[in-house]
Every structure is written in C-alpha cells, then in structure tokens.
Simulated assay, not measured.
Amino acid sequence: MAKVLVLYYSSYGHIEKMAEAIAEGARAGGAEVDIRRVPETAPPEVVKAAGFKTDSPHPVIEDVSALADYDAIVVGTGTRFGRISSQMAAFWDQTGPLWAKGALIGKVGAAFTSTASQHGGQETTLFSILTNLLHHGLLVSGFDYGFAGLNGVEEVKGGTPYGASTIADADGSRMPSEVELAGARYQGKRVAETAAKLFG
C-alpha cells in the first residue's frame, strides 16, 4: 500500500477543504494517507487582524525529514501574487539536507492551489510548487483531462492540467465547488494509483 502525504498551507480554509478532498481521493485509490499543515510564519497579530482560520483538525508537520517517509507528496497552498505562499516556501527552504541526500528522488509529487480570481495566478503558483518537487527529483503527476470537469465553461471553476484548484473570490467568500472538490478527489486518486504502480 502506497503512503501519501497531503501537505498544505491554508489561510482561510479553501486549501484545507481541497486537501481533504485530495486525501479522500488518494484513500479511494488504495493509499494510506496523512494530512499535515506547514507551520504558520505570520506574526500572531497579523493572523488575528487578517482573520486567518486557526482551528484546523490537521496537525502541523514537525520536521521536514518526515517527507522521506512517504511514497507520494501532494502539496497545496493558496497563491501569493502568482507564486507559492511564504509559509510553504519557508518549509521547503529547510529541505536542503533531504536534497543533498537525494531522499525524495523517485517519489510521486503533485500540486493544488487556490486563487481569488480565474486569472489570479493558478498556473504560476502550481509551477512554483512543482519547481520545488522537480528539484528534489519527484516524478510529477498532473491533473489530466480524464477528469471531464476540466472542460466546459458553464460555470466558474478552477482546474488546470498542472493541478487541481479552486477560486475563492476577492473577499474569500466562495468555498470550493463540488466540481472543484471532485477534481481534487480525482487528482488524489491518480497520485495514489501512480504511487502504487511504482511502490506497491
């Protein structure tokens, strides 16, 4: 049984919901799944003033070395001006020793994200996540067009071939839609199935 880590950072709960859907899909694909958050790096006064969601049910990952324990790592974070959030970047900036040992080479990697608008940097943020994974030697699993919801313009929705995504609206009021969550489940299942073929 493949072991999958869903690793995320979420300020307002959008990515948290997507992480849960990714994990649900990975479990449906036969994997053992852990969901972990990266540590918050914003000062407490900023967290409070900005109204960040702080009551997550998922534990914080304590040590970057834990990444080596998994067959697949699916990374999610909201965009910050078209790129990875500083919280997620700070976590990956600590992984130099893992890189030096090649500890993550050959594992499966994938990405998911959230933006305020349809053109708010989903693809560039996904690529900024995937860049970290590729430097570590992970084999990237995308979000393929086997998921029919990637097509169609009948509703506002996230989703790119580079990773599942959701659109939160400028005030954060829009939570992931059912089609976006279904896409995240699909991606999670594909990651689990790919990892099983490699490590099962």
Rank of each mutant, 00 (worst) to 15 (best):
R83N: 15
G137C: 08
G78S: 05
E16R: 10
G30R: 06
N151W: 14
A103T: 00
G29W: 06
N151A: 14
K3F: 11
F112R: 05
E154S: 14
N151I: 08
V179W: 02
T115Q: 04
V75L: 01
F127W: 08
G121F: 07
R190L: 01
L67E: 14
A19D: 13
A28G: 15
D93R: 07
V191S: 09
G146D: 03
P39M: 00
A196T: 13
L67K: 08
V74D: 00
S56E: 01
A2R: 08
S177F: 00
S165I: 03
H14D: 04
N132E: 08
K107Y: 02
K197Y: 08
E180M: 01
T125K: 10
Y145S: 14
K107V: 02
P59H: 04
T115K: 07
K197L: 15
A192Q: 12
F52P: 06
G200R: 12
F143P: 00
G109C: 03
G102I: 12
A50I: 07
Q187P: 05
A49H: 07
P43E: 13
P57E: 03
F199P: 03
I15H: 10
P44G: 09
P39S: 08
F52W: 10
E32K: 05
P44D: 09
A192F: 10
F112N: 04
E123M: 08
F52M: 12
V108F: 03
A184M: 00
M1C: 04
V74I: 06
